[in-house]
Design a protein around this nucleic acid. Structure first.
Lengths: 336, 336
DNA sequence: CCTTGCTGCGCAATCGGTTGTCCTTATGTT
DNA sequence: AACATAAGGACAACCGATTGCGCAGCAAGG
């Protein structure tokens, strides 16, 4: 039973015996909580360091009712998680969690099939949950609320009382679009992704809001949502060009990358024949020639922020219900 | 302290009290181990089901010296993990682990910086480790051996006594190349990825072995390793074409996808002007027109297999030192 | 000199399970 | 009827930490 590799595991009792003290003294020396002599404390700490003792988080967790684990929920369909955004965001979560001696447990949900998440939460395997993205009718949110597990959503949602960390996609897309309008563009097309994702809906709204404000016309024929494959993007691009679009607004880096490839293949010159902008910048497009006008966010920052916020909640610290992180508009040659 | 959401947690003692039995009886009813009456067992089980009691894995883990967690080690640089292969492979690991009530803890390593992995292992947070890929001089392997934690590597390695699950890349690449030679191709070029990855080195060797066997010449000028960016691939493609290559062998789906894009942009007709094959098939290239000759593996199977093998090790079951999973050669129009 | 108060530390209970041991019954054998 | 045997279940120890409580020792105050 158990694993033999733990054979050389040092317990708090071993340390206590070796030092001729009690377990409580060792525990207090480590935590710094409770009353303990300065000298004793240092003696314990130096012994621990030397013998490489690490408290068993399982035992620690049992007595503290903690797991020292956080569930990171990602969609199981690879299309999203494969994006650099997600990788960076997770890196941020991992870093921030590690700093608090926490680890990341993968929760994989398929669209709205949240059985894996349910198993993890109902088994009490985590202290909190970070949702990697939000859907329009996200079943995981009501479930998490009902189960009372603390959680933070990366992305926005209409559910009430949900702590959300997000970039201000509405404002960003609105601003970028407005700038392009100022530059004289009058006919836009939007090539968008899965409309089931909140972020995509918000980006569309920010975009449309700018058009409305500046009284630029657009019809549904110029809006191509749910472009999930390269073929979808190609079809959308073809139609948009035929409809006389002056500028293609790509909803994310994946779509933009596919759009660029399509345009190059057709020898449509970016900036001369057609302008193009992306609502999200990443290495998928950042090395392109000509350079691409895009919105820049910091996904790692997003992950770090979400994780830190979750820790605040776990520690009973009041947190803001909704935090909007900054963004940057990067005007490049593709819209010159 | 702790989390309030656990407030409604039902413990084994609650169940025992409600049924007028002892904790041990409940425990034995659940595990099926030890002596327990059939009737009692069913009474307990039905109560548990009805009241949705789930044993606390932390407590269970403490008494069994288990964590019910497995560390899934992935490279932190997004280039690899972003590939569909990795996503599928992880899905397999998650599925197989879930089936045994195990969960996946993320271990993120940056090239050979394995501090995160070390923290997880030395903190005893997992029962075993699955390495998502192997490097030529993989520092994580000697560390894992030394720490005595059971682990399985997806991919091959020269380190001794390491349990490895892999596709037979050597044989597969050798076979595909041989077939293409039979079809009359005499001048190949290889566009390859990071030579620090074992899989890439093995694919190259399988490829070269076929050429040698069939006495087809190739020089270092026709082998382009370490193509990490699209630009690298484009440069390699240009040079290969100039050198008179008849067939471009792409080492993986990412490279192949970039190669296809480059060829289309240059209006080089695939199959007519140049033949092309990929050592790995995925949706990055599977929808292409013309269809692409490629090697097909089952990454999910790989993940499942690795996880099951790890469980065997944990359960003291003898396992094969090295398992090679099957592959399939898919001849399509790109090499007609 | 006795009381008060504080400090440092050990004892033991606790977290929620698992499992070896022992006691009580029911069953089977002669 | 007497006894051996097995089965079912309760008890308590244990996994490795944390933490409330209490006790000893010492300094300060009256």
């Amino acid at each position: 039973m158990g694993n033999e590799y733990i054979e050389d595991k040092v317990t708090i009792e071993d340390v206590a015996n070796a030092l001729g003290t009690s377990k409580s003294t060792v525990s207090r020396a480590i935590s710094g909580k409770g009353r303990i002599g300065k000298e004793t404390r240092e003696r314990v700490l130096s012994y621990i360091k030397e013998h490489n003792y690490k408290p068993n988080p399982i035992a620690k967790g049992l007595s503290e009712s903690k797991t020292y684990n956080i569930c990171w929920v990602v969609p199981g369909d690879s299309s999203m998680t494969a994006l650099p955004f997600f990788q960076r965001c997770m890196a941020g979560v991992v870093d921030a969690a590690s700093a608090e001696n926490y680890d990341i447990l993968m929760g994989v949900v398929y669209d709205n099939n949240i059985s894996h998440l349910k198993r993890i939460v109902s088994n009490h395997k985590v202290d909190g949950v970070i949702l990697g993205r939000t859907l329009i009718n996200d079943e995981s949110i009501p479930y998490l609320i009902e189960s009372k597990v603390p959680f933070v959503a990366i992305g926005s949602t209409d559910y009430k009382d949900v702590v959300q960390i997000d970039n201000d996609h509405f404002k960003a897309c609105n601003e970028l679009t407005s700038i392009l309008i100022m530059k004289g563009i009058k006919k836009f097309a939007l090539i968008g992704g899965d409309s089931n994702h909140v972020v995509n809906r918000t980006r569309r709204e920010g975009f449309l809001h700018a058009l409305k404000e500046q009284k630029i016309d657009i019809t549904d024929d110029d809006i191509f949502m749910n472009c999930l494959s390269d073929e979808d993007v190609e079809r959308a691009t073809d139609t948009a060009l035929r409809n006389g679009a002056e500028c293609l607004m790509c909803m994310d880096d994946g779509i933009c990358s596919a759009t660029i490839a399509k345009l190059k293949r057709d020898e449509v010159s970016i900036s001369e024949d057609i302008k193009i902008a992306s609502f999200y910048n990443s290495e998928l497009i950042s090395n392109n020639q000509p350079t691409i006008t895009a919105l820049q966010y910091d996904p790692k920052e997003l992950g770090i922020n979400a994780c830190k916020t979750l820790f605040d909640i776990l520690n009973g610290i009041e947190v803001e219900q909704k935090v909007m992180l900054s963004y940057e508009v990067q005007l490049k040659s593709s819209t010159q």
